[in-house]
């Protein structure tokens, strides 16, 4: 387990998740300290994306149900307003999904406008800051009026990250954020994750084991809806405790 003594930023306690009667997660408990990157790995269908969606109440939007508790800064998010939870716990998806009818500027500003979070005078600053944090500002600063979908795939994904950051979340969830991108765009996203962890707490689901090893501080291995092992990334990738983890990361699974 991570050796951090600080209280966790986000903490899952005994999480069970269901799709109808099918149980997708079994009693998962995990602590993620602030300013750390947790990577979740495991074969398809192991529950890693479901777990991610339990961390910002997206699972219930997808028609699922859950038992257990998830605390953000010690507060149970299932006793809070789901909209405010999703603002505090932002999400970036596998496929870049900028709003197609909106400009680059509006794509970043949309969350702030909808939530009434920023005065008009502040909006420009926040959009610029968010695009800078997402390492996209220099590439788009002269074309903020252009459509978000005019950008390349990698730029679109960074635009989506900027959109997530604009509402000033505490935690950023990323569900395979680079799996649709080429190696250069992937490298940019990975570098960005390193930069962002000084300000945010990040959870990333990835199928790419080397990516998990490169970007994360701790790694959790899920299999058949169960958390098999969670530990320091350098420990998991040099000397995992569990046989199943070793078989999975060395490609000897099944």
């Amino acid at each position: 387990m991570p050796s951090s003594l600080q209280s966790p930023k986000i903490s899952a306690r005994g999480v069970d998740a269901f799709f109808g009667k099918v149980q997708a997660l079994h009693n998962v408990s995990l602590d993620i300290p602030e300013h750390r990157v947790l990577a979740i790995i495991g074969p398809s269908g192991c529950g890693k994306s479901t777990f991610l969606r339990c961390l910002n109440r997206m699972h219930e939007v997808a028609g699922g149900s859950m038992r257990g508790e998830v605390f953000l800064d010690g507060e149970d998010i299932y006793k809070a307003d789901p909209v405010s939870v999703r603002r505090k716990v932002g999400m970036v998806f596998q496929k870049p999904n900028p709003f197609p009818t909106m400009s680059i500027f509006d794509n970043v500003a949309v969350g702030l406008r909808l939530n009434g979070l920023a005065k008009k005078s502040e909006l420009n600053d926040i959009v610029e800051r968010s695009l800078q944090q997402a390492a996209l500002w220099d590439e788009v600063k002269d074309q903020l009026d252009k459509s978000g979908v005019s950008l390349s795939g990698g730029q679109q994904q960074r635009l989506c990250i900027a959109r997530t950051l604009a509402v000033n979340p505490r935690v950023v969830l990323m569900d395979e954020p680079a799996s649709a991108l080429d190696p250069l765009a992937t490298a940019k996203i990975e570098e960005l994750i390193h930069e962002l962890k000084s300000a945010y707490t990040i959870v990333i689901v990835t199928h790419n084991m080397q990516q998990a090893a490169r970007v994360s501080d701790s790694t959790a291995f899920f299999y058949l809806g169960k958390l098999i092992e969670h530990g320091e990334t350098r420990k998991i990738f040099t000397n995992p405790e569990k046989k199943q983890t070793e078989e999975y990361i060395t490609g000897r699974f099944g």
């Binding site: 084991m209 990738f237 040099t238 990361i249």
Partner: peptide, 9 residues
């Protein structure tokens, strides 16, 4: 192959 765990060792 970017080996890990027992293979890396």
């Amino acid at each position: 192959t970017q080996p890990v765990a027992v293979d890396l060792r």
